[in-house]
C-alpha cells in the first residue's frame, strides 16, 4: 500500500519535471529501456547549482520519468538501495567516465587545465560532472561525491510503513533528542559528512512514502515536526527535493 503511494508520488514529481521541461522548450533528449521491464524512461538534461565551492562550476543530471502509462515501482525496485553503500572504486566500476577530449598530442605539449570529468552511472543513467577543481584527480572525487548526492535525491527505495523501522544510516542524521534513537549516544552526522547522503536517501524514502507530510514523517521518527523541518532545511539539496515533492502535492514549501 505504502509502496504504491510512494511510487505514485515519485511519478508525479517526474511528471511535473516533465511538464516544466517540455513547457520551457527543453526536449526529451533520449530514451532508455529499463532493464527490469519493457517500459522506457525519458531522459532530460537539467543543471543544478554546485554545492559548496563558490566557483563557477555547475553539474548536470539526467532525470528519468516513466514513459507510457500505469504501473509503478519498477524504477524503485529493491536493488537500488545498495548504490550508496558501495565503496568509491565499486561505484566507479558502475560508471562510464568521460573527460573532455582536447585535440592535439597533449602531455608536455599543452598547458592544459581543462581536466573536467563526467561520470555516468550506468544502472540509473544519472550523470555528475565536475570541472572547477584544478586537478583531474580532484575533479573525479568531486564528481563521485556529487553522484552520491544525486543518487540519494533521485533513487527511491520502497518503504512499507506498517513494518517500517528506520535504518541505522537514517538514525545517524537525526538529532539526539529523537526518541527512536533510544540509548544511542553517537553524535549527529551533519550535511558536511560524506555519510550524510545515506541518511538523506533513507529520509527521502520515508518522506515520499508519507507523500510529503513532514508531520507524519516526524511521528515515525519520534521527533517534533519543527525538529524534522530544521533537519530538512539544513541541506539545500534535501530541502529542494522535499519542496519539489510537496509542490507536486499542492502543499506549501518548507522555509
Amino acid at each position: 500500500m505504502a509502496t504504491a503511494a510512494m511510487g505514485g508520488g515519485f511519478v508525479n514529481v517526474m511528471k511535473s519535471v516533465h511538464h516544466m521541461l517540455t513547457s520551457n522548450g527543453v526536449g526529451v533528449l533520449g530514451k532508455a529501456v529499463c532493464a527490469s521491464s519493457s517500459r522506457y524512461f525519458h531522459f532530460y538534461s537539467v543543471s543544478l547549482q554546485s554545492r559548496g565551492r563558490g566557483g563557477g562550476g555547475g553539474l548536470q543530471l539526467f532525470c528519468c520519468s516513466r514513459g507510457g502509462s500505469g504501473g509503478c515501482g519498477d524504477y524503485s525496485d529493491g536493488n537500488t538501495n545498495g548504490y550508496l553503500k558501495l565503496r568509491d572504486e565499486e561505484l566507479m566500476k558502475q560508471c562510464e567516465m568521460n573527460t573532455f577530449k582536447s585535440s592535439g598530442p597533449g602531455g608536455q605539449h599543452r598547458n592544459k587545465r581543462e581536466s573536467a570529468v563526467r561520470l555516468k552511472h550506468l544502472p540509473t543513467g544519472i550523470v555528475a560532472q565536475a570541472v572547477e577543481d584544478r586537478s583531474q584527480h580532484m575533479n573525479r572525487a568531486s564528481a563521485l561525491a556529487r553522484l552520491r548526492t544525486l543518487i540519494a535525491l533521485k533513487v527511491r527505495n520502497p518503504v512499507h510503513l506498517h513494518t517500517y523501522s528506520p535504518p541505522l544510516e537514517l538514525l545517524e542524521i537525526l538529532p539526539p533528542k529523537s526518541t527512536i534513537r533510544g540509548s544511542d549516544s553517537r553524535p549527529q552526522i551533519g550535511p558536511n559528512n560524506p555519510k550524510f547522503v545515506l541518511g538523506m536517501q533513507a529520509l527521502l524514502d520515508l518522506i515520499f512514502a508519507v507523500e510529503g507530510s513532514v508531520s507524519d514523517a516526524a511521528k515515525v521518527l519520534g521527533m517534533s515536526t519543527g525538529a524534522l523541518s530544521r533537519l530538512i532545511l539544513s541541506d539545500d539539496s534535501l530541502r529542494m527535493a522535499v519542496n519539489e515533492l510537496r509542490a507536486s502535492k499542492g502543499m506549501k514549501p518548507l522555509k
Binding site: 597533449g106 602531455g107 608536455q108 599543452r110 598547458n111 592544459k112 587545465r113 581536466s115 586537478s135 583531474q136 584527480h137
Partner: peptide
C-alpha cells in the same frame, strides 16, 4: 620547473 600535467597523474 616543468608544471606537472594532468596526464602524468
Amino acid at each position: 620547473v616543468l608544471i606537472p600535467r594532468p596526464e602524468t597523474e
